[in-house]
């Protein structure tokens, strides 16, 4: 198999030809904030706008999940411009989330906490005015609880539900601020075609989908 060598944050890395920067970095222990990306996806949706990195020779920061590695590429994940963009994106995301970590089962394993730590941002960031969605919690499934207020609309659950399992119960509805991950006609999970495999819960980066037994992974 053809390999490509590149440098990320001064570290020399060998990876597969055609790989994206994000996965090459993560595989080699270099963390880049990301929410919407899934390793198995053929093409990243690149909607979370958090994985910005700087590539030498490119004028603007690029999203690591869409940028393919090239021979001799030099990547800087901690460039000022990339971090500025990632921080703004993250703070905008936080501005519509409740951030009630003290009462959230996901606390400790939440991707948002990890990203906030990495970007050196307070989870109670005051930069943007808080605007909450105040949507009802769906408690109807016997396996998990869905709290759309904690959803970051990354689409991971939607993707696994249809691609990995071929079910397609989950999807997006509405537009703009009203956009939600939901079922057909917004029916509760308990009444939907959901087969309760729990894969959507396993890929959820936040506390939006959580198992009822309080665990974050399925047993």
């Amino acid at each position: 198999m053809k390999t490509v060598s590149l440098t990320i944050d001064g570290k020399k890395i060998e990876t597969r030809h055609g790989e994206k920067i994000l996965w090459a970095a993560l595989e080699n222990g270099i963390y880049i904030p990301n929410l919407c990306g899934l390793r198995d996806e053929a093409e990243s949706v690149a909607s979370c706008r958090l994985c910005f990195v700087e590539v030498v020779g490119k004028e603007q920061a690029v999203t690591a999940c869409t940028e393919m590695v090239t021979e001799g590429m030099v990547v800087n994940t901690r460039g000022a411009e990339a971090l500025r963009m990632a921080r703004s994106g993250f703070e905008l995301l936080l501005s519509s989330l409740p951030m009630d970590c003290a009462h959230c089962v996901k606390s400790g394993s939440c991707e948002l906490q990890k990203i906030a730590h990495h970007l050196n941002i307070k989870l109670k960031s005051k930069r943007f005015r808080k605007l909450l969605r105040e949507l009802p919690i769906d408690d109807s499934s016997s396996l998990f609880t869905y709290d759309p207020n904690k959803c970051v609309l990354c689409g991971r659950c939607v993707w696994v539900c249809r691609e990995r399992l071929g079910v397609g119960v989950l999807g997006f509805a509405n537009r703009g601020f009203q956009r939600v991950v939901t079922t057909f006609a917004g029916e509760p999970f308990g009444e939907s075609k959901c087969q309760e495999c729990g894969d959507c819960v396993s890929v959820c980066p936040t506390g939006a989908l959580t198992f009822k037994n309080g665990k974050t992974e399925e047993e």
Partner: peptide, 12 residues
């Protein structure tokens, strides 16, 4: 296609 895809487009 899944029903949710139709619902998704309609609500968009």
């Amino acid at each position: 296609i899944p029903g949710i895809d139709v619902y998704s487009v309609i609500t968009f």
